[in-house]
Simulated scan of single mutants.
Amino acid sequence: MTEIVSYEDVKAAAKRIGPYVRPVTLTRPGKSLWFALEYLQHAGSFKARGAANFITAHMEAGTMPRAGVVIASGGNAGLAVAWAAARLGMPATVFTPTTSPAVKVDRIRALGTDTFLVGTEYAEALAASREYAAEFGALLSHAYDHPLVAAGAGTLFDEIKRTEPRLDTVIVACGGGGLFAGVAAAAYQHGVRVVAVEPTGCPTLHAAIEAGRPVQVGVDSIAADALGARLVTPAALHWARESNASAVLVPDEAIIAARRTLWDEHRIVVEHSAAASYAALLSGAYRPAPGERVCAVLCGANTDPSDLVVRA
């Protein structure tokens, strides 16, 4: 049976990673709208929270091997593990698909982490990371499907709630479901609605809700490097049901437009996956009720901003 992340897990994670992560900053671009600027987090995304929680928990338990930690990632989780391992003095190895953005791979390598490019999809990098763990004895982490990783991501919510106690709804991008599961576990305790946003080409949570279980989906989106999981976690499906969360789909065109609007109107640079939460609002995929107080989480900024700059 898969272990489901709980609010107790999230609270334990907050105590564990407090010395290492940056508290999230909120800004208010509209009367009833807030942005959670989690792209300002160490390593450029919310993934730093889960990586720090995973590594520190194993260090506390005495279960971190001398070979360190190994992970497969489309980029952000690998970068987060590379950062956390360097911060905590642990060796790390990262496997990424050959299609991972160069800006992410270059940053992983800049942290001195052994980095291997394998296959064209996350699943192929994952298989290679498992083989590496078995051969060298490294501790296998996961980009999203682990209760320690999801609990670390979930610490984001309580920080948001402390800043804006009257919040009604929080909107998060959903790929494999680690961020969604952690945030939903925390938000449920406070009666706050969670909206999961997926690209139409990577509908893992949508498909799981319809089928009643996690099912394989295709991967076809401009945000696939971060939201391109083929299978949502059982924990994400559990919290979608338990919390009666909303799950909406947005096309790539809406994600691109939202990323552009964040730059043009707010001078915020994020990657496409991070723009998905705002795309749900701009496209009308999620329509807040009058006066509903909404926070859109902008979860990562490991991107090449050159396509946002208008050249004369």
Rank of each mutant, 00 (worst) to 15 (best):
residue 259 R to L: 07
residue 128 A to W: 02
residue 151 A to C: 08
residue 283 S to A: 13
residue 131 E to R: 14
residue 123 A to Q: 07
residue 101 P to M: 10
residue 180 F to V: 06
residue 311 R to D: 12
residue 138 A to Y: 06
residue 207 A to G: 12
residue 21 V to A: 10
residue 235 A to Q: 11
residue 240 A to F: 04
residue 88 L to F: 10
residue 57 A to V: 03
residue 180 F to G: 02
residue 264 D to C: 00
residue 206 H to T: 15
residue 14 A to L: 14
residue 263 W to H: 14
residue 127 A to L: 07
residue 109 R to W: 03
residue 31 K to C: 00
residue 173 A to N: 09
residue 95 F to S: 01
residue 50 G to N: 07
residue 223 A to F: 06
residue 141 S to A: 15
residue 41 Q to F: 09
residue 102 A to W: 06
residue 17 I to S: 09
residue 19 P to T: 09
residue 208 A to Y: 01
residue 247 A to P: 02
residue 160 I to Y: 01
residue 140 L to H: 09
residue 8 E to V: 14
residue 270 V to S: 06
residue 152 G to C: 09
residue 16 R to I: 04
residue 200 T to P: 00
residue 88 L to P: 00
residue 119 G to K: 00
residue 175 G to T: 05
residue 34 W to L: 12
residue 153 A to H: 15
residue 233 T to Y: 07
residue 168 D to L: 02
residue 203 P to Q: 11
residue 45 S to P: 04
residue 284 G to Q: 12
residue 169 T to I: 08
residue 184 A to S: 14
residue 20 Y to Q: 02
residue 200 T to S: 14
residue 227 L to A: 07
residue 252 D to I: 12
residue 175 G to Q: 07
residue 193 R to V: 01
residue 184 A to E: 04
residue 12 A to P: 02
residue 167 L to F: 05
residue 62 G to E: 10
residue 37 L to E: 14
residue 23 P to H: 11
residue 77 A to D: 02
residue 90 M to T: 10
residue 177 G to W: 04
residue 258 A to I: 05
residue 312 A to R: 13
residue 309 V to M: 14
residue 149 V to D: 02
residue 64 M to N: 07
residue 204 T to Y: 00
residue 32 S to L: 03
residue 151 A to P: 02
residue 309 V to W: 13
residue 26 L to V: 11
residue 31 K to M: 09
residue 148 L to D: 10
residue 62 G to F: 11
residue 294 V to A: 11
residue 48 A to I: 12
residue 224 A to T: 02
residue 202 C to A: 12
residue 20 Y to G: 03
residue 223 A to H: 04
residue 233 T to E: 06
residue 47 K to H: 09
residue 263 W to Y: 15
residue 28 R to V: 04
residue 116 F to Q: 08
residue 30 G to M: 12
residue 52 A to F: 14
residue 134 A to S: 13
residue 294 V to F: 11
residue 27 T to I: 15
residue 233 T to R: 05
residue 68 G to W: 01
residue 98 T to L: 14
residue 8 E to M: 12
residue 274 A to C: 13
residue 137 G to L: 08
residue 109 R to I: 04
residue 59 M to E: 13
